[in-house]
Every structure is written in structure tokens, then in C-alpha cells.
């Protein structure tokens, strides 16, 4: 455990996503080294870091789409060995199947998650989820007829329709304009806090503001190689009001603190490398 800030006081939830001694390399390059994480059930965390810090790789490992080189990854104590409907994923590049209508995309997901239910009921459910994300009128549309924001709403609806207790999101709003991004952030929070059994969310982003606004805890990843450099508990209560929060001194202070830590990490990395080099030259 590398919880550097105050440990959880309010809730004593069960074991959620656990990562121990994780290492991952590709073609001899270390992408992630010695990552330890403990994410509680129902917690909303962000993986925050610059490009190349392995945050997407970490998410893919949690999804079961990649196999770690070393270390253990588990959900509720059960080792993660492959993809599962327990862990829904929303990708940055809208991954709805473009040859199916929105409705068909979502009914397919429901059919896989709940094979028993009738086609009619499936359609009804799919329409409900589309309504939840504000796409009630677009059920018959095909993904490429829709804007990026609408496609991503559809992808969220698909993941929700599966009913996964874990939601893994890989920079889902990264390609959207600021207004749509804010709208979808609010939609996500609304959906997440609206349910009685809150989903465990792992949200990958490089946007400090987004991480602070959305999550309970921000896990900062540094690059070359990817590793956890700091964990920060977000002190804001919920529900959060964007206007009040983003302008507040506390928010500004946290944002500056995070930026400073990233800068410091970069400098430390560079200096560490040059030390190694100069020693190497001396030999």
C-alpha cells in the first residue's frame, strides 16, 4: 500500500481492484514498473499522467486485454486473467460498431450480458439506457451519423447496459470540445452517483481539472518508466458543483500542487539519467 494521504475513514468497503508489484514491458522497454494500487469497491479514481506514462496500458491490464509481465491483478480477490463483462470499458476512440444502429449496439451488449431475456425486453432496456444518456431520439441512428459526443454517450450507454460493477474509462472525453466534455463529465457523475450500488470507476486522463472534478482519489503516474509517483485524496464532497469548485482556492491549490509534482518528477528523472551516464562514462 502506498497511500500517502489520509487513509479511508468514512467507508470500510470490501476489496475492489488490487494491483501488486505489477510490471509490464514491451519489446524490451519497461512501460510499467512496480505498480501497487488498491481501489475500493464503489470508489471513483483517476489515473492521471502525461502521455507515455503507461496509464492506458494499466487500464488495459485491469480490463484483462493485456497480460502483465509480473505481479498480480485482481477484482474482489479473484485474479484477472482476461476480459470479462464484470469490467466494462469505454475507449477514447468511440468503439461502437459503425455497422450497427445505436439500438443494435446496445441490444447486442445486453444479449451477451443477460442471455436469458427476450428480444422485446432487450429493446426496451436498450431504449431506457439511451434515454439515460440523452439519446432517446437517436436509437435508429448509426454511429457515423452522430457527433463524437453523441457517439461517446452511446458507448457509455452500452457499457452501462452490460451492468458491469467496474467501469474502466480510457480518456473517454479526450477528443471532445470543452463544452461537450463538461456535459459528459456531469452526465457520468450523475449516472455514477444515481445508482444505489455505486460502480467502481477507473478513469484515465491527462487533464488535471477533469481528474480533480470527477474522482475521489487521483493517482499520479510518472513516465519512463511508468510508475505511481503520488496519490492524492480529493477533499471535495458530493454532489459537486462545477462553478463553485473550479473557481475555489482549494481547487487551484490542488491543481498547482499536482503540476508541481509532475514537474519535479521530470527533473528528477532527467537528473537520475545524467548521473548514470556520467558514472558510465567514468568507467
Amino acid at each position: 500500500m502506498t497511500l500517502t494521504d489520509t487513509p479511508t475513514k468514512n467507508s470500510a468497503p470490501g476489496r475492489g481492484l488490487e494491483v501488486q508489484g505489477l510490471r509490464f514491458g514491451y519489446n524490451g522497454t519497461t512501460i510499467l514498473s512496480e505498480v501497487d494500487l488498491a481501489i475500493h469497491e464503489g470508489e471513483f479514481i483517476s489515473l492521471l499522467g502525461p502521455s507515455g506514462c503507461g496509464k492506458t496500458t494499466l487500464l488495459r491490464i485491469l480490463a484483462g486485454l493485456e497480460t502483465p509481465g509480473a505481479g498480480a491483478v485482481s477484482w474482489k480477490g479473484k485474479a484477472i486473467t482476461g476480459p470479462s463483462l464484470e469490467r466494462g470499458v469505454v475507449f477514447q476512440d468511440y468503439s461502437l460498431f459503425p455497422w450497427m444502429s445505436l439500438l443494435q449496439n446496445i441490444t447486442l451488449a445486453i444479449a451477451k450480458a443477460q442471455p436469458g431475456i427476450s428480444a422485446k425486453w432487450r429493446r426496451q432496456l436498450a431504449e431506457d439506457y439511451l434515454e439515460m444518456v440523452g439519446l432517446a431520439g437517436a436509437a435508429r441512428k448509426y454511429p457515423l451519423e452522430l457527433s463524437g459526443g453523441m457517439q461517446q454517450r452511446g458507448a457509455i450507454a452500452r457499457t452501462l447496459a452490460v451492468g458491469s460493477p467496474v467501469l474502466l474509462m480510457d480518456e473517454p472525453f479526450g477528443a471532445l470540445d470543452p463544452v461537450n466534455r463538461a456535459r459528459l463529465q456531469d452526465l457520468l457523475l450523475e449516472v455514477w452517483s444515481g445508482t444505489t450500488a455505486r460502480k467502481t470507476v477507473v478513469f484515465v486522463t491527462h487533464d488535471v481539472e477533469e481528474a480533480l472534478y470527477l474522482s475521489d482519489r487521483v493517482i499520479m503516474l510518472g513516465s519512463s518508466p511508468g510508475r505511481v509517483i503520488h496519490e492524492l485524496r480529493v477533499p471535495f464532497g458530493r454532489p459537486r458543483v462545477r462553478r463553485d469548485l473550479v473557481g475555489s482556492d482549494e481547487f487551484t491549490r490542488l491543481r498547482a500542487d499536482i503540476d508541481a509534482r509532475f514537474r519535479r518528477d521530470v527533473i528528477e528523472r532527467i537528473e537520475a539519467d545524467s548521473t548514470v551516464n556520467s558514472e558510465g562514462e567514468g568507467v
Partner: peptide, 26 residues
């Protein structure tokens, strides 16, 4: 991304070929 989505949804081999690979290759 389509391969990943299909894996996460747990599509079987035949379903994967018919509903994903075939239309994508059309």
C-alpha cells in the same frame, strides 16, 4: 478497438466472425 470491444462483450468465435469481422471487412 473493435477487436477489444468484441472481446470485452465476450463474443464467441462464430459471432465474432459474422457480426464483427465480416461487416468490418465489407
Amino acid at each position: 478497438r473493435y477487436r477489444d470491444s468484441a472481446r470485452i462483450l465476450g463474443l464467441g468465435r462464430v459471432e465474432y466472425l459474422v457480426r464483427i469481422v465480416f461487416p468490418a471487412a465489407l
